[in-house]
Design a binder for these strands. Structure first.
Lengths: 201, 201, 201, 201
DNA sequence: TATGAATGAGCATTCATTCAT
DNA sequence: CATGAATGAATGCTCATTCAT
């Protein structure tokens, strides 16, 4: 009988074996040959598991993002204040714990902007929906607990977008270097504005 | 005897001559040969004016962005309410008038994320600062005229980032398809929150 | 315990299972992987039975040619006039009944011309001799029955070659499209010339 | 100004420079790299002038065939008897003078059979028509001079095909090794049959 | 005996860049 | 200044073949 291989597992193994190399050089600057060599496999074998370099990056982002989601869901359990919950999401954009995924995600976004591919868009949509749903839930809880005004509902998407926008700005300009402070400050200010019971400041 | 050519002008001419082609095919999928042919010049000549394809895109974005800035400054003169002024900026992300620049800017951002280059970052910083300064001014005016609460100052960067984030989301996912509505709704809600003399809605 | 398999039979089975695929795509455009998959066997198994793609084509041509020979021998039994007997042979080149073998034979000839292999040449010689012998017999009968002049003996090889040449022309040019008419007309004209007892026409 | 190159001439030069190599190894067994190196040019340059290896072979066959045609037309001028004229054409298939073209043409035919391409078919049709027209003229002359019976007209295509068929047989089997004798004998026998006014033999 | 995962030599093809004119 | 012919490094990709199981 033939050698039995868990294709999905090997796919993951190759992807993870390539992580460091991709982070070091950038997916753009890697050749299939280099990736295969680094993963200890032949070029042909690479093609058995991936259609292209991009597919590899894709797999890697999926794996790491799944792990990341597991982690933040655990963290969300512990958080109480809405602002803290939001910050847990925002962590992604500056925290050292997410640095690898973040860097890969940056490449992923770059590719999406330069040569959009259906699968990528679908995946990004899925991710968006996943986080958006969480956001909605968190905000709803905040409203129910009378922490936040009902109008907050209308800001759900915006809060999400703001963090993302700040991240992109931090990556493409010389501003927003202290992204953590930038985002936290934003969240705090906004939460204050949305706090139940009129305030003025 | 030699024909005197304004190098800077010819640079602009080549860039503008390439605009349609870049928009059609994407900078990634163009070769120097194709660009040169399209512009009616030789490949060698291209190199006389540009270091790379990216430099061409750069030039083009600069030209169009300058024209765009001239236009929005004129529009800003006419606007009165802060929300309207902000929307004039946000127009960039969805308005048909900016579609070409927007598309090029998208490519530009993609390249910035995939292979950051000092010149690009510097340029993006410059653009950021330019718009940020306008934003500050607008918000300051809103505060002075008692249209907005002073706390709005702390939201300057955030408003900017939100629009950008929404744009990136609209480009990389299947959400935020009606970007105009998305942004306007956000601006209106936020302005209401920031309006002088607390109201709750 | 082991399953006993008639190797020669399995070889034939694989070859016949590949027939449609080869006819559809052409032997050139097939990979061993595709052939093996199509035949429902593993790549390694393919090599157990065939040395190469060409060997597979070879086997297939042999099988079909044998069947074809059986059929024309039966038909020859029934024919009376020499011209009719010759046409039975020539059928091969245009008749729908032989279309599969003909197509495979075309590939076979192409390979023979591009990269002649001893085995192929030997096989083609064998086929040639087989048909040539039949031709000789037929013509001899025609002469004995005083249907044909003795000089016809010297035309044996030529008649054979003419049909083949017309076929090649029909396959490689846009002429001789109505090969059946072309060949029949030739045979009739030639038979008239060779008819015993003065002819005029 | 740029270097001026006669592209058509350089194309021919490259083709002719490749002739010996192709004859030695066969077009199948050559890589673009080997061809380019042999011709003293870069691989990229090869692609400036040819789309593929086959295009090179094509060019070469065209050049040599043109030269060949010039030669046989000159020879035809001198021939008097129809049989001799026909043999001048048939020379192609065995004469040492045509050996290079013949060998290339063999490859050409092989490719035509294995992967027919419109351009090749068109070219082969053109060649066929060229020779066919000559044949018709020759035979017409033979008829007019009362050397041949009128029925010969119906044999025009057949004579042509016979020589071709004999050639293919000689190349793909171990028969017809003395092709010259084979063809001459055929031509003589046929001419005798077609001779005006009763024949004896 | 059967398999199909693994392989990497091998090849076509592209294209940025140079430089003689 | 302008050019475009020439180049070959670079790279993606294929696929026949092997061999551990």
């Amino acid at each position: 009988m033939a050698i039995i291989v868990d294709k999905a597992q090997k796919r993951r193994d190759i992807a993870l074996a390539s992580k460091a190399l991709i982070l070091e050089k950038g997916i753009q600057n890697l050749t299939i040959a280099a990736i295969a060599k680094n993963a200890g496999i032949g070029k042909g074998t690479f093609y058995e598991y991936f259609k292209s370099k991009e597919a590899l990056l894709f797999e890697l982002v999926e794996i790491l993002m799944h792990a990341h989601n597991v982690r933040i869901e655990a963290e969300l359990e512990l958080a109480e204040r809405t602002a803290d919950k939001i910050k847990i999401f925002a962590d992604f954009f500056y925290d050292a714990k997410s640095s690898e995924l973040r860097e890969l995600y940056k490449m992923f976004t770059g590719i999406s902007l330069l040569s959009p591919q259906k699968e990528m868009t679908a995946f990004q949509t899925e991710c968006f929906d996943y986080y958006y749903t969480w956001f909605e839930k968190i905000i709803e809880e905040g409203i129910i607990s009378q922490e936040l005004k009902p109008v907050t509902r209308q800001m759900t998407g915006a809060i999400f977008a703001t963090a993302k926008g700040m991240f992109i700005i931090s990556q493409t300009t010389e501003r927003n270097r202290d992204l953590k402070h930038e985002i936290h400050s934003y969240v705090d200010t906004l939460m204050a504005l949305l706090a139940y019971e009129g305030e003025e400041r």
